[in-house]
């Protein structure tokens, strides 16, 4: 817990959520993380509307041929350092829809994914776990950008 609070205190991660090809199941579970029972805000995690203020990109649902540009556009608007979290079976691999004609596959076909949260739908506890892991990776990336010679030390 001390490690977690140290990371969170050093940077309160702001999250932007993108629904790619999801059935809403993961979206509402992600929103449930922010509401009183789970309350991700106590860990400093805030959901923001614009990618330009966000550190973590939470993607639910798989990639398809229409939303590929939207997703890339949102990712490119985010400032460095940035972390991508794939929430749900669809975002990880394509899930039950992996053999559909309009589904390319998991998000990792398009973006570099740092954290995978499996499940259909994942419970809010596991999504929060994924966000904590993402904030740790965010801190690593931040140190790397500050001291490019030193490499990773955390």
């Amino acid at each position: 817990m001390a490690g977690i609070s140290k990371n969170i205190m050093s940077k309160s991660p702001w999250v932007v959520h993108v629904n790619c090809n999801s059935c809403n199941g993961c979206d509402i579970e992600f929103l449930a993380c922010l509401t009183p029972i789970y309350d991700a805000e106590r860990l400093g995690i805030i959901n923001v509307g614009t990618p330009k203020q966000a550190d973590i990109l939470v993607v639910t649902g798989s990639a398809n041929y229409k939303n590929i540009d939207v997703l890339k556009n949102i990712y490119n608007q985010m400032p460095e350092p940035k972390v991508v979290v794939a929430v749900g079976a669809c975002a990880c691999t394509g899930g039950v829809f992996h053999s559909c004609y309009n589904v390319i596959g998991g998000i990792d076909e398009i973006l570099p994914v740092d954290v995978y949260v499996p499940g259909c739908c994942p419970k809010p506890e596991s999504i929060i776990d994924g966000l904590i892991e993402a904030s740790r990776i965010l801190e690593e990336k931040r140190i790397k950008i500050k001291n490019p010679d030193k490499g990773v030390a955390i």
């Binding site: 790619c20 649902g61 229409k66 829809f97 559909c100």
Partner: peptide, 14 residues
């Protein structure tokens, strides 16, 4: 619209 089209109806034929 069309951002969430998966082709689910076709999948049930498989």
């Amino acid at each position: 619209i069309g951002y969430v089209h998966r082709g689910l109806e076709k999948l049930t034929e498989l």
